[in-house]
Every structure is written in structure tokens, then in C-alpha cells.
Write a protein that binds this DNA or RNA. Sequence first.
DNA 1: CAATTATATTACTATATGGTTATATAGCGA
DNA 2: TCGCTATATAACCATATAGTAATATAATTG
Lengths: 109, 109
Amino acid sequence: MSSKPLTPETIREVALRFKVLAEPARLLVLNVLREGPLNVGELIEETGLNQANLSKHLQLLHAGGFVSRQRDGLYVVYELSEASVFALCDIMCGQLQRQATAHARRLRR
Amino acid sequence: MSSKPLTPETIREVALRFKVLAEPARLLVLNVLREGPLNVGELIEETGLNQANLSKHLQLLHAGGFVSRQRDGLYVVYELSEASVFALCDIMCGQLQRQATAHARRLRR
DNA sequence: CAATTATATTACTATATGGTTATATAGCGA
DNA sequence: TCGCTATATAACCATATAGTAATATAATTG
């Protein structure tokens, strides 16, 4: 379905969105948030990223609309706002798998 | 479905694949190839990219398994090998649209 | 208000990468 | 073999960005 015309402007925006996902640290954050909302301190524990670095990644994820944020007293709680990210990752993993098996098949010959 | 464990290694590989798509020039190439296979000269015309630059992008797309390549005499013909890229783009565009409408709604209030 | 805690931001460094020009390689025909 | 054309690669520069340490801001409590 869909397949909009893909103007240069749209292409640029889509590329920007892919860029947000093109970083292991950010994928890790999204993956951790899959279990449920977490505040920054909890995210530091779960991801092992340091505070400043994590904060920067969170700003990017938030700017891209991938997570939403809500202050709760001293804490800021982040939550997935785009479950569709995991559809994307699943497709990517599917590609990886197909290529891996294709590669294996190639070797087997 | 699926939702494999997402090891750090998998996360890194998925990020790498997203990185290939995180570039307007490469999305443009893929979009042009959607119409059918083209050789490099034709891709230069269609995309407006210069020869060396396009060639580098093509190497990345090929390394990522997004396109396949076949020599035909003097020419090298590139072809989409992963139609699933457009499922990805469609999801991204869907996100863009949802965010745009959400933004519009927010303004309207 | 002062002290404390949680988060965001700034400033900086190091690295990666896109674009360009020049050069190299590959395949074709004479 | 020698040109000629198509494509790939190398070398370079400029820019973007991830990581880090230090600092700033925000909210809470006393």
C-alpha cells in the first residue's frame, strides 16, 4: 500500500529518522523501554550508558518522536511512543537472517 | 512476531543496516531502482549524483545486501535485492504522517 | 532560602563519513 | 596490442556526531 511519491523532502526526513535508529546505543534504549516506561536513572542501570551520553541519546529519540517523556517529581520517565520501531527491527533482522542463510548456502555449495 | 533476544551483536548489526538507509542519496538510489534494474550511467542520470560518489554509495548498498550487481559487458547493472526496504520506508512515512497530524491537532487546540 | 538529587546542556576531543578530484581497473573493439 | 568507455578506488577535505567531563537547570526537602 501507500508508496507515496517520495519527494526529496520526504526522502530527507525518512533518512533522518533512519539515522536516529542507526546507533546501537539508541536501539538498546528502545529495546529496554520495550519492557515498560523507565526514568533516566533506571535507564542508566539497564543500559550501562553514562548519564550525559544517555541524556543526549534520549533527546534525539524524543525529537524523533520515538519516545515520549513525562516528569514525575525529580524524575523524568521515558516511554516508547512508536511501537512500530520494532516492526522495523524485525524486518531488519529478517533481512539479516535471509542473508545469513543465503551466505551459508553459498558456502555449502 | 519474532522478537528475537536482540543480543548486543544483533543490535550492532541492525544499527549498521539502518545506517545504510540513513542517507538521502542512498534512499534516492533505492527509490530509482524500484522501477527496475539500471546500470551506473543510467543511475547517474536518474539521481544526479556524480560518478565517484554514486559508486561509493552503490558499494555500501551492495555490501548491505540491499542491491545486487551483475556485469554486462562494459556496464554494471544494479538491481534491488531487498524489496523489504520499502516496507521500512512506508512504516517511516506512516510515522511521519502520524506525527504530522498529531502536531497539527496539537496546534488546532 | 540552602542543600540535595535527578536530569539536561555545554565544551571539547576523536572518529567516521559524504563529497570531490584524480587515478586505477575492467572490458570492448580495431 | 592500443585506445576507448564504464566503473571502482584512493586521497583528501570538511562536516557531523558519539563519548566524556564539567557545569547548569529543575524539582524536592528541610
